[in-house]
Simulated assay, not measured.
Amino acid sequence: MYKNVLQSIENIQVWPVISFVIFFLFFLCLLWWVFTADRDYIEKMKGLPAEDNTINKTASNRPSHE
């Protein structure tokens, strides 16, 4: 049933090519960003969850609901 529906759409063969091109361009851009990103920025982001105390401070300042 679905095969007949998809075959009836005009120019349906274009959409897989378009989606592949979009994926491939996104992948290339992401790869380019990984290799050209500033190392200091990456190190800062890597250590951020362990070094950020604002979450712990706000959690400890909240009144307890006991």
Rank of each mutant, 00 (worst) to 15 (best):
L30E: 12
R62N: 09
N53K: 15
T54A: 01
I12A: 06
D52Q: 01
D38I: 01
L31E: 11
P16F: 09
D52F: 00
S19R: 11
L48M: 08
G47R: 01
I12V: 12
L48K: 05
E66G: 01
F23C: 05
E10G: 01
F27T: 11
V14H: 09
R39W: 09
V17Y: 07
F35K: 13
D52E: 06
Q7D: 13
W33Y: 15
L6V: 04
D40L: 04
I18W: 10
L31T: 15
L6G: 01
N4I: 02
S19N: 15
W32P: 00
D38H: 03
A59W: 07
L25V: 14
Y2E: 05
F35D: 06
N56S: 10
F27I: 05
I9Q: 08
I42Y: 12
T54N: 08
L31M: 13
E10S: 06
I55W: 10
L28R: 14
C29K: 13
H65C: 05
V14P: 00
F24H: 06
H65I: 02
I18D: 05
K57M: 11
L28F: 15
F26S: 08
E51D: 14
I22M: 13
F26R: 10
M45T: 05
F20K: 14
G47A: 04
F26Q: 11
W15D: 02
E43R: 11
V34T: 13
E10F: 01
N4V: 03
E66M: 03
I42W: 14
W33R: 15
D38T: 04
K44T: 08
I12R: 12
I9N: 02
K57N: 11
T58V: 04
F35T: 10
S64A: 07
K3L: 06
W15M: 06
S60G: 02
M1P: 00
Y2F: 06
I18V: 15
S19F: 15
M1A: 05
D52V: 00
